[in-house]
Design a protein around this nucleic acid. Structure first.
Lengths: 336, 336
DNA sequence: ACCCACTGTCGAAGCGCTTCGACGCAGTAT
DNA sequence: ATACTGCGTCGAAGCGCTTCGACAGTGGGT
């Protein structure tokens, strides 16, 4: 391994000069700079990460905690993770991947050891047990998701409450009076996952305001679960004509089952999905949907984090405004 | 931050003793060990990662290169990534997430800086440009995937050639003589992604041996693309009665389109999928499939890597044997 | 009784980098 | 001339840990 000292010798300057060329923290004459850069190139020098971290107490690594479960929301998570990694690199950071498995211990380990300078936390529960730790440490952190009490924390998320409201508005404005929500798997609600609960609040709140009826049913993905759920819904509310789906694994089953039952989309029932753009476009019916802007969320999270690391930026909640795109799955409510 | 020296002082021993307690590299008397451990606990000591890396030239980090694209295979990638992260932790390693974006440069950067002790590379192309670098460095690496020439490399992968063969065998044994393969998106083949090409070889080879006809059509996911592809297939080979699908995004569209065309599964056409178990089980028809053992692959890759890091283990190609599970989507060929 | 091997502990020397203060040398203001 | 201010460079002091060799103390073999 080539060291700083070797580069310095090769370029005929002192080690500190090379260091300053690299960091730009002091001014260097153009000739010296060039000489050093040439030596670096020739020798194929790469600064040693450990030494750098030790001396500067900055690792240039941000940790990303992703959920361990692969039972929900996988493509979104993946997209966020990739966006985070990509965005972090453009700011000179690498990304350490932590699974939720270790839970709060991971936070302790990473902040305690100085392995990472900061962290991004996904899959936030309303009353997440990691929050006190994050508040208590001096390492910056950003949540992707919104807990019940975001005070003292920086959060980036889609405004799921507004998302829910928007879906109801859309369907109500088309004349639908009986709506059903196909939600995430029951476990997601049991864990009090922020986004799921907030969506529900938004849905229910606006439904109440607009005087439309709303049924919420959690649903595991897949055909069998969906069939059961759907049967129950139509038993309880035969007049249901509008669906909001927030569960990727339920989208296609729902469409297939409706078709199978002779209910035309959008003539007999309308469907609005909350899902990544791609899912909405590739479904068997092009879905009216509110997109989950995974890339944007990842990117914004990194930007917030970098701002904090640079001493700029403060605790702040960034809620991305939902956008509803009308496609082929929603239309006027059928005349009774 | 609490340091080793503070722990040593608190416990009334020297710093090196504390270090040896932590690493276990020299024997320590039970009483001393307990005293030190107690001090560590009381002070909430966490070893500094940078200092450790510098002194030991081991970072206890493995890098994981995942593809940047989210156009294919996402859940599998995610599952592998999580399995890798989880398995790595059980061996005391953390995982650094690299996207394919940087390409070979990422390999140089990470190995050059000592940021990671080793790396796992996913989404391997047959003639991947990262391979020479991996061969040339002394840092251990493991590929998840199989390049054209695996010499000097350690690889872990599902035996996709055998997988292809297995699918053909299954359909041929049911009497199907005209098979069609719905492949990954064209781009995947253009990049000469290892698994896709090998599957194809396996399919074609066994088809030739068994004297059945085989059509291969790459296909983007989604309904529209699938509809076009399917129409073409039935135009060219109206007698096609067996399908092999290797594209998660095409599975559901295919089933829906077949249904729509009045072709019953499995009475009129049989479908075999190469996909994660979950997809096969949750599809509208429970699919006969060869599972992609994502978790297993991730775990095995880590095991190989750790073995190499420990000086055990050698260059080796680990091919997991495919297993075909018969479900409801395949049956005897229709009588002509 | 003596030597040897072993066990448990310590001190010190780095690992490769960052960063602080110092210093020489212009250039500018007095 | 003198004093001052930058600028560009250097030397040295760590950052917190691992690890090597040294060294007491202990016990077993002869």
């Amino acid at each position: 391994m080539v060291t700083l000292a070797e580069v310095a010798q090769h370029a005929g300057v002192s080690a500190s000069t090379v260091s300053y060329v690299l960091s730009g923290k002091r001014s260097i004459s153009p000739t010296t700079r060039q000489r050093v850069e040439e030596s670096i190139r020739q020798l194929g020098y790469h600064p040693n990460a450990g030494a750098r971290a030790l001396a500067s107490s900055r690792s240039n690594i941000v940790a990303l905690m992703i959920p361990l479960r692969t039972d929900m929301y996988v493509p979104v998570m993946m997209e966020i993770a990739i966006a985070v990694a990509t965005a972090a690199r453009t700011h000179g950071y690498d990304v350490l991947l932590l699974t939720g498995e270790e839970g709060p211990d991971a936070v302790r380990r990473v902040t305690g050891s100085g392995l990472a300078d900061a962290m991004i936390v996904m899959d936030v529960e309303l009353d997440d047990e990691r929050l006190p730790l994050l508040r208590g440490t001096d390492r910056p952190s950003v949540l992707i998701g919104l807990p019940a009490d975001p005070s003292g924390l920086t959060c980036v998320d889609l405004d799921f409450r507004a998302t829910g409201a928007l879906c109801v508005e859309h369907l109500a404005s088309l004349g639908h009076r009986d709506l059903a929500v196909i939600g995430e798997a029951p476990g997601v609600y049991e864990r009090h996952t922020g986004f799921a609960e907030r969506t529900l609040e938004g849905l229910r709140g606006r439904a109440r305001e607009l005087g439309v009826r709303l049924l919420h049913r959690p649903c595991e993905g897949g055909y069998d679960a969906m069939a059961l759920t759907l049967a129950r819904i139509f038993d309880e509310r035969p007049g249901t004509s509008g669906f909001v789906v927030q569960n990727e694994a339920a989208v296609e089953p729902l469409l297939a089952l409706l078709r199978q039952q002779g209910r035309a989309v959008p003539e007999d029932v309308s469907v609005v999905a909350i899902c990544p753009e791609q899912v909405a476009v590739q479904a068997s019916v092009r879905l009216t949907s509110v997109a989950i802007p995974a890339q944007e969320m990842g990117r914004r999270a990194v930007e917030q984090l970098v701002a904090k690391l640079d001493g700029r930026g403060s605790d702040e909640v960034v809620l991305l405004a939902p956008e509803l795109t009308v496609r082929a799955s929603s239309g006027p409510a059928p005349q009774v």
